[in-house]
Measured scan of single mutants.
Amino acid sequence: KNAAKIVNEALNQGITLFVSDNKLKYKTNRDSIPSELLEEWKQHKQELIDFLTQLES
């Protein structure tokens, strides 16, 4: 999976991924984040940080 797909899947579940101080963060109104999503974010962390940083610049 690529970073764009992961970010879109998160958005579809009401979760916004973003970068703050070079760290991957998220915002959501959900009570909890599915563990498989958290695991996927960890596996692709640097790719996600790079992707989101490019989007914001």
Rank of each mutant, 00 (worst) to 15 (best):
N29C: 09
V19S: 04
N2G: 12
Q54A: 15
L55V: 11
S35E: 15
G14L: 02
K1H: 09
A3T: 07
D50S: 12
E47V: 11
I15F: 07
V7T: 03
K42E: 15
L52F: 06
D21A: 07
D50T: 11
I49E: 03
K23R: 08
A4H: 09
L11K: 12
K42P: 01
K1N: 11
I49L: 07
Q54I: 08
L55S: 14
A10K: 01
A4W: 12
S32V: 11
K5Q: 15
Q13A: 14
A3R: 01
D50C: 06
T16A: 06
I6C: 03
Q46M: 09
Q46L: 08
F18M: 06
Q43W: 07
H44A: 06
K45Y: 15
H44I: 04
A4L: 08
V19C: 04
K27C: 09
L55P: 10
T53Y: 07
E47G: 06
L38F: 10
K25M: 15
I33N: 01
A10H: 01
A3H: 02
D31Q: 09
F18V: 05
E56R: 03
D50H: 10
L17C: 01
P34Y: 03
E40Q: 15
I6Y: 04
D21C: 07
L37S: 04
D50Y: 12
N12M: 15
S35I: 13
K25S: 10
I49W: 04
L48W: 00
V19D: 00
W41Q: 00
N8R: 10
L17S: 01
E36W: 09
I33K: 02
V7H: 04
E56L: 11
E40S: 09
L55C: 08
T53C: 07
L55M: 10
S20T: 10
L37M: 14
I6L: 11
I15C: 04
L24H: 01
K27V: 10
I49C: 05
E39F: 07
Y26H: 04
R30N: 11
K1A: 14
K42N: 13
Q13K: 09
L37Q: 04
L37N: 03
S57H: 14
Q54L: 09
E9W: 05
T28P: 10
Q46W: 09
Q46S: 08
V7S: 02
P34V: 03
N8I: 13
K45A: 14
I6V: 04
L37G: 01
A3S: 05
L38R: 06
S57T: 13
L24Y: 01
A3L: 07
R30Y: 05
W41G: 01
S32A: 08
E40D: 11
L52G: 00
T53M: 14
L37E: 01
W41Y: 04
L11Q: 10
L52Q: 00
K5T: 14
Q43R: 14
Q43V: 13
K1S: 12
N29R: 06
L11F: 10
N12L: 14
K23W: 04
H44S: 06
E39I: 09
E47M: 13
K45D: 09
K27W: 09
N29L: 13
K42G: 09
L48M: 03
Q13G: 05
Q43C: 06
A4V: 07
L11R: 10
S20D: 13
I15E: 01
Q46G: 07
L24R: 00
Q13W: 12
K45G: 10
L24N: 00
I15T: 02
D31G: 12
D21W: 04
K25C: 11
W41T: 02
S57P: 12
N29M: 09
L11E: 07
K45P: 02
A10N: 02
T53L: 14
K27P: 01
V19G: 01
D31I: 09
L24T: 00
S57L: 13
K5P: 03
S35L: 14
Q43D: 07
S35N: 14
H44L: 05
E39H: 08
V19F: 04
K23S: 11
T53S: 13
Q43T: 15
L24Q: 00
T28R: 02
G14R: 04
Q43S: 11
T28F: 04
F18N: 02
S57R: 02
D21N: 11
K45H: 14
A3F: 04
N8V: 11
I49M: 07
T16L: 13
L11M: 09
F51G: 00
K42L: 15
V7C: 05
K45N: 13
K1I: 11
L24F: 03
Q46Y: 08
L55G: 10
H44P: 00
E47D: 09
V19I: 08
L11C: 07
G14K: 04
S57N: 13
D50M: 07
S32Y: 13
D50I: 10
Y26L: 04
S35V: 14
N22E: 06
A4K: 09
N8P: 01
Q46P: 05
A10Q: 01
N12D: 14
E40N: 07
T28D: 03
K23H: 08
L48A: 00
K23Y: 06
L37R: 03
K25F: 14
N22W: 05
N22D: 08
N12T: 12
K27E: 10
I6H: 02
I15Q: 01
N22Q: 09
F18I: 06
E36A: 12
N8H: 13
K45W: 11
Q13L: 15
N8Y: 13
Q13V: 07
E9C: 05
P34G: 04
I6S: 01
Q54H: 14
E56P: 15
I15R: 00
T28V: 04
K25D: 07
L48Y: 00
I49R: 02
Q54Y: 11
Q43P: 02
N12S: 15
S35F: 12
T16E: 13
L24S: 00
P34M: 03
A10E: 00
D21K: 06
S20L: 09
K45V: 14
E56N: 15
D21E: 11
L17M: 04
S57K: 04
K5L: 15
I6G: 01
S20P: 01
A10M: 04
E39R: 08
D50Q: 12
F18T: 04
T53P: 02
E36Q: 10
